[in-house]
Amino acid sequence: MHFHVFDAAGESLGSFGTADHGRRAVTKQIDRFSFAERASHWVSAICFLYAALTGLALWSPKLFWLSGVFGGGEVVRAWHPWAGMIFSCALGVMIRRWSAQMQLDEDDQIWLAKSHLYAQNIEAGLPESGRFNAGQKMLFWTQSAAALGLVFTGVVLWFPESMPRALRLGAILLHPACASVSIGGIIVHIYMSTLGVPGALQAMVRGTVSEEWAKSHHGKWYREVAGR
């Protein structure tokens, strides 16, 4: 016998090859991300993608063709900074909501030291994670720091004619440097949230996860919300 377990949204959460699991055809859903969290995440995600792709167009003449996809170089030059501004506002909402939950605790330190096990999908030796695991926390702080650098250097590059030369010289290097960190991080983030961890995308779209998903990936958080 081979059963699929479906969540409330009708998405497959994975398949189970033994008959034992057939009884769990309907699973209980737990709220994971509020509307405000999801909205700020996706506003920032769309602005980030636009800013990253248009930014890559300005990163190298060999990638300038990307600007054609978004209406040409002049359009990109005009809108890239605004996308950055909206992105930083949405990120500001996420930082306000999450920074307390993103503090690394002692378990997270152990988790990080053993993160090679996580990468190999061997979770047995790892401490249970809270609402966010240590990898997500590291990504959060890396992206926030890079974004802060991007905003400040971005404003300098936005108005070259009214900025002191010394600032422009710094910004022209630091802006792409911060962007590189942030794009590198987002590649990992997109992989983990789509292919890497099935169910993660639906958590950020519909806001819910199955009880089993919560137990598996965020055991400490699951016990908090389940009250046991």
């Binding site: 990468a119 999908n121 990992v188 292919l195 890497g196 961890v197 099935p198 089993e212 137990k215």
Partner: peptide, 15 residues
């Protein structure tokens, strides 16, 4: 990321 997926696959929910 691609090689990781091919070698280790997704993180399934434990039974």
């Amino acid at each position: 990321a691609m090689l990781h997926y091919l070698k280790f696959g997704p993180k399934e929910v434990h039974g």
